[in-house]
Amino acid sequence: MKFIESIRNGLDSLLGNYPEVVLYGEDLIDPYGGAFKVTKGLSTKYPDRVWNTPISEAAIIGMSAGMAMCKMKPIVEIMFGDFTSLGVDQLLNHLTKYAWMYNNQVETPVTIRTAMGGRRGYGPTHSQSLEALLSTIPGLSIIAPSHYHDPGRILQQAVLEDSSVKVFSEYKLLYPQELQTPNTVKSGLTLDVSSDVYPIAHLSNCEFDNPEILIISYGGNALLLEQVLLDLLIEYELSAQCALPARIKPFDPLQIQHLISEAQVVLVVEESPKCHGWGAEVVATLSEAGLLSGKNVFRIGSAETPIPSSMAQEEQVLPSAAQIMETISQILV
């Protein structure tokens, strides 16, 4: 099954089984079925609960809070992650504040689904990964599964069981990817996925070794990192593993703890800007938990410039396999 189908099936199952679930956003009804076609077929099947909105991100995000207070389970699709900035006041000053500010008299179990990431040539305002920016909003959960997870199942559990305000980040290049399981994973790699509500996928290029390299990342970066794991193996026979938590905020160091002990090199890779990024938070959290002493720690993220439309220039700005290989080889080769 493809990543996009998994999410579509997850939405279908939610709408089919839970009448309080609604799904709305820009351009998502049939026949168009959403800019990335995730919702295709759903408005035909559930015409009363899947609908199109005007281009009014602030209002549609804000309204979800009122719906949630009326015991609905709204799922809002924001077409491009970049557009979440238009709803940041609602996320920052409204949705994430209500439950706590009102002394837990209300709950706002809202899910904001949005497509993040570059490498599609969409240029500066349609290519960003704003997880790091959004993660600075207190109380906002950020979920960003990869194709090594079961994104549809995670989405269902997030909508049904997690009462926090959630941004569910879908990396654009993941949509056509086949979901990977321990049986289908690329030759040379092994996969282990935890059974948590928000599982951590653990991808490794060695079966029994204690790898000297641990890469912590999330979402679509997995596409880059599966190649890095193979390259490390083929170029240098370096054993490495990659930890991909499905929920990146709150970040739980306990999910990583058992993977980190043998690592000499710890890298955090994200497509958000490196400066003040998620990587900084992860490194600081792990360090405070006493897990990084004596290790070589690096962050890799995008540069401090807008994301160019040109493919060649975009490669310079976003994290690349070559950049990661170079960082590792400087220490270990």
């Binding site: 030759s187 040379g188 193996l233 083929i234 170029e235 240098y236 026979e237």
Partner: peptide
């Protein structure tokens, strides 16, 4: 190439 295996550089 359709090789069923791939050697690392060390191999």
């Amino acid at each position: 190439p359709d090789a069923s295996y791939m050697l690392t550089k060390k191999a």
